[in-house]
């Protein structure tokens, strides 16, 4: 069958979002080659599924694929982690396998060379949130997706987007303030 949408169209609509795709993958998978692989993989998937794109919100459509790819990857990690964990229970107890399989997210903050301590702390606070919270927060604050768009990307009702986002902000606020203990200061 012929493709409805041309590679040229893909180039124009999807390729400009490599950075956004990478950002989401980094937040979800941490600073690792996995994130790059996930983004590359997502673009191949996106290209093959491009005919199914309805022509609106290219970035959101792409980020949905990136999210799915990353979630699959996270699933694999936790399965691996479980296997290794059981092994270490019966064998040695150094736990290396387990921490290997877990997401090491902290180097991210160093990587972007954030000058301000406040920014570094905020960054770390976002990183410490549960994956569910990170996704909605990133899509909203960094990628300008509306509640409806987020609901399509993550595959949850709009009401759930609202409550997750609200919870994510509360968690973030609590953790951020707990780290800095400068809650009364409203200035940047």
């Amino acid at each position: 069958m012929y493709r409805k949408r041309s590679p040229r169209e893909f180039e124009k609509t999807m390729l400009p979002h490599i950075d956004a795709a990478y950002r989401l993958a980094m937040w979800l998978l941490g600073h690792s080659p996995d994130a790059e692989d996930a983004v590359q993989d997502s673009f191949v998937r996106a290209f093959r599924a491009f005919d199914g794109w309805k022509g609106v919100n290219a970035k959101g459509w792409l980020l949905k694929i990136v999210r799915n790819t990353c979630m699959t990857q996270l699933g694999k990690r936790s399965r691996n982690a479980n296997v290794i964990h059981l092994d270490t229970v019966s064998g040695d107890h150094d736990g290396i396998g387990f921490s290997d399989a877990c997401v090491d997210k902290m180097p991210l903050a160093e990587d972007v060379l954030i000058a301000a301590d406040r920014q570094a702390r905020l960054w770390a606070a976002v990183n410490s949130l549960p994956t569910d919270s990170i996704i909605v927060l990133i899509l909203r604050e960094f990628e300008d997706q509306s509640y409806k768009q987020i609901s399509e990307i993550v595959g949850i009702p709009i009401g759930t987007v609202m409550s997750r986002l609200s919870r994510a902000r509360q968690q973030l606020r609590a953790r951020f303030l707990a780290q800095g203990k400068e809650g009364k200061n409203h200035e940047m």
Binding site: I18, V39, R169, M188
Partner: peptide, 26 residues
């Protein structure tokens, strides 16, 4: 305030090699 602080966080960009790999793959 929290939202403004979040939005002022530096945006990371994908490394150049990833841009190139994706373009070549495309």
């Amino acid at each position: 305030d929290l939202r403004d602080a979040l939005r002022m966080l530096p945006r990371i960009s994908a490394p150049e090699r990833l841009h190139q790999k994706i373009y070549a793959g495309f």
